[in-house]
């Protein structure tokens, strides 16, 4: 029963993630779109650990750890570099 429960929560979070991604992608500023990095890190990690509990096995926890790490690196790299060029264009 726990498996089904974990799986349904995972599906719910997936739906949640899709709605949030669409909302973030609509913008209006590039900063809003960068919120996707946060969304993927947290919701993605949650979905992965739930799938691990729903029968996917512990290797999925490693995937969640790596995803969280990449979200952190990706987000900070974006904030430091990608916007700089945009700022230069405006100047």
């Amino acid at each position: 029963m726990m498996n089904t429960f974990a799986l349904s929560i995972a599906l719910f979070l997936l739906g949640n993630l899709v709605v949030a991604l669409v909302a973030a992608a609509r913008g209006p500023t590039p900063a809003d779109r960068m919120l996707m990095a946060l969304l993927f890190g947290t919701t993605g990690a949650a979905v992965l650990v739930l799938l691990a509990a729903a029968g996917g096995g512990t290797p999925l926890i490693d995937v969640a750890l790596v995803l969280a790490l990449l979200a952190a690196i990706g987000g900070i790299a974006f904030a430091k570099r990608a916007w700089r060029t945009e700022e230069d264009d405006r100047a």
Binding site: T29, P30, A31, M34, L35, A37, L38, G41, T42, A45, V49, I61, A64, L65, A68, L69, A71, A72, G75, I76, A79, K80, W83, E86, E87
Partner: peptide, 26 residues
């Protein structure tokens, strides 16, 4: 499992600050 949490916390806190700072700079 619990180890995932501090990692994501650190990621979100750092990314959140970085985004806010860049948004302000823009």
């Amino acid at each position: 499992l619990l180890l995932v949490w501090p990692l994501v916390l650190a990621a979100s806190a750092g990314v959140g600050f970085a985004i806010a700072r860049r948004a302000r700079a823009l």
